[in-house]
Design a protein around this nucleic acid. Structure first.
Length: 198
DNA sequence: AAGCCTACCAACCGCCAGAAC
DNA sequence: GGTTCTGGCGGTTGGTAGGCT
């Protein structure tokens, strides 16, 4: 026998999270820290699968997340990294610390893919890199991006781009229910430090 | 004003690697 | 060493808001 099962499949709630559930989850993580997701539904009484709790936290409730309003710099990074790494959204997200893989994936599927398809004759993963290089609007600054992203990938070291990105991230604001939850929690989000760089 | 269409995004599903027993 | 579970990831879907006719 291995470990005990993660959670009872019966009685697991699905669908959108309510503000109450968010508060319960954030309060629990504030107290115990993220991790050991199996214990979250058990300890909090949330009728949610541990997976669902983890997803909700990482994609939505985690402090320091920036959502929406992708800058042209961020777009460039995503486009270039996608051409280099493929659809490895978690890896791409690691270079944009305040963005979640889900957010990047959504942005790619809804915005960038369309833009690139528009720019090129067809969207083909096999020839994506060539196409990205050709694409109008994304060709500009591509050489710069090549250098910067290569540096980031090689050593993830300090770079002017990283500074610029950090500045953009820190200065931007977003409107979402996260703010409301933050207010409800009495500034927990503000007091929590942003996640460390990868 | 009503119905239809499109775009967006939160959340689910299924798979995999590694960890726990 | 084998079995089972957890955590993480990428793909996909369903709900809904906004725009268009």
């Amino acid at each position: 026998m291995g470990r005990p099962p993660c959670c009872d499949k019966l009685g697991v709630k699905k669908g959108p999270w309510t503000p109450e559930e968010d508060i319960i989850l954030v309060s629990y993580i504030q107290e115990h820290g993220p991790g050991n997701w199996r214990s979250v539904p058990v300890s909090t009484g949330l009728m949610r699968c541990s997976k669902s709790c983890r997803l909700r936290w990482t994609n939505y409730l985690r402090p320091g997340i920036k959502r929406g309003n992708f800058t042209s710099h961020e777009e460039g990074v995503i486009v270039h990294l996608q051409s280099l790494l493929g659809n490895r959204w978690a890896a791409i997200a690691s270079y944009l610390p305040r963005r979640t893989d889900n957010d990047i994936k959504n942005y790619w599927n809804t915005h960038l893919k369309k833009k690139l398809r528009k720019a090129g004759d067809s969207f083909d993963h096999q020839h994506h890199h060539d196409m990205v290089s050709r694409a109008d609007g994304y060709g500009a600054g591509q050489a710069y991006m090549n250098t910067e992203v290569s540096q980031l990938i090689a050593g993830r070291g300090h770079s002017p781009f990283a500074d610029a990105a950090a500045e953009v991230c820190s200065s931007s604001s977003y409107a979402s229910s996260v703010d409301n939850i933050s207010k409800l929690l009495g500034g927990f989000m503000k007091s929590s430090p942003p996640p460390p760089p990868p």
